[in-house]
């Protein structure tokens, strides 16, 4: 295990300084849709309206939903709620998707099926077993990273993810004890196969957590033929404090969605009252000006309607917005 807070601090400070020095150019705002929701039957309608409003065109597409499944502890809310996953699945099928799979490669628990069962996925999602792919043990393909920020040059990644048309990141809105906040971009860690890199996927820690998040994000946004990204964050009940596992539940009552994962995560940070301009992986991937408040085109309900200060561990109190 490795404590890298000092390096993260240095990289964050350097990135902040660089951002400050860049010539500010007008940035085209990215639409981010925020909707009020609870874990109830109504959530299905809310999600359907959100995807329709964002004009997500998945007709004939193969879609992979990537929830955040980490560990199960009945005392807190670690994982993406299964109702959110099921609602997105139903909405995508209603929009004409050819195939919708749920896929995840948990980073700590090796028995993904037991974890999914404990987290309520079997109970909530009909035919869950047939729809689910354990990304930790899927067929793998070597992928060369384009202009990597981390020390990695190549990664083996699951074919299920590389071959789909849309990869939908469905994270939980949580604080994170190494990178401040874990949202739709950090959720991409789950596509890295444990059967090669282990449980945890410790290679990503040694290569730089923030840099690896940026590399994975860039892999899907770098212009090569890869699945397109979409994100919908489960912020109905998030996690504050010592996330992503040992924190405590934080009700927010929001779902946050969009095509631009940087904008979605920046909007979530603002909801959590975390300064997105101090999150290293956002700084690495954001275009100049893209983390400013005006770079988020708020549709649906405004960020201010959901602002809920998430408790931060002492190491991250400086992130407070």
């Amino acid at each position: 295990m490795k404590a890298i807070t000092r390096r993260e601090w240095i990289s964050s400070a350097a990135a902040t300084a660089l951002t400050g020095c860049r010539k500010r150019e007008p940035v085209k705002p990215s639409p981010v849709l925020i909707a009020r929701a609870a874990y109830s039957q109504d959530l299905y309608d809310v999600v359907q309206r959100m995807l329709a409003e964002l004009r997500l065109d998945v007709r004939g597409a193969r879609v992979v939903l990537k929830p955040n499944l980490v560990e199960f502890d009945e005392r807190t809310t670690i994982n993406t709620h299964p109702v959110v996953v099921h609602a997105v699945l139903e909405a995508l099928l209603a929009l004409g998707a050819k195939e919708v799979r749920i896929a995840e490669g948990p980073g700590h628990r090796r028995n993904t099926w037991e974890l999914a069962e404990a987290a309520g996925y079997f109970e909530t999602v009909p035919q869950f077993e047939a729809r689910f792919t354990d990304l930790n043990v899927d067929e793998v393909v070597p992928v060369t990273l384009d202009r990597p920020r981390s020390k990695l040059r190549r990664l083996y990644l699951p074919r299920t993810v590389l071959d789909c048309d849309w990869l939908v990141s469905l994270p939980k809105m949580k604080t994170h004890h190494w990178v401040g906040a874990t949202l739709s971009m950090k959720n991409l860690f789950g596509v890295v196969p444990g059967a090669i890199y282990g449980w945890p996927k410790n290679l990503l820690h040694w290569a730089g957590i923030a840099e690896c998040i940026a590399d994975l994000h860039r892999l899907f946004t770098g212009g090569q033929k890869r699945p397109r990204l979409f994100a919908l964050v489960d912020g109905v009940v998030g996690m504050e404090g010592d996330g992503p596992i040992h924190g405590v539940p934080k009700p927010v009552g929001a779902l946050v969605a969009g095509y631009d994962l940087v904008a979605v995560d920046a909007a979530c940070c603002r909801i959590m009252r975390i300064e997105p301009r101090k999150i290293p992986y956002l700084l690495l991937e954001a275009r100049p000006g893209a983390l400013e408040p005006e770079a988020i085109q708020e549709i649906g309900e405004p960020i201010r309607a959901f602002e809920t200060p998430f408790e931060l561990i002492p190491q991250f109190r400086s992130l407070r917005l």
């Binding site: 295990m1 090669i196 890199y197 282990g198 290679l203 040694w206």
Partner: peptide, 27 residues
């Protein structure tokens, strides 16, 4: 030199999942 304290300084050498990473329980 960096002044970073390892939580498991007392742990003897063990085995990683993947080369050049830390040792973990299963391997």
């Amino acid at each position: 030199l960096l002044g970073v304290r390892d939580e498991y300084e007392a742990a003897p050498p063990a085995w990683p999942w993947y080369p050049d990473t830390a040792a973990w329980l299963v391997p």
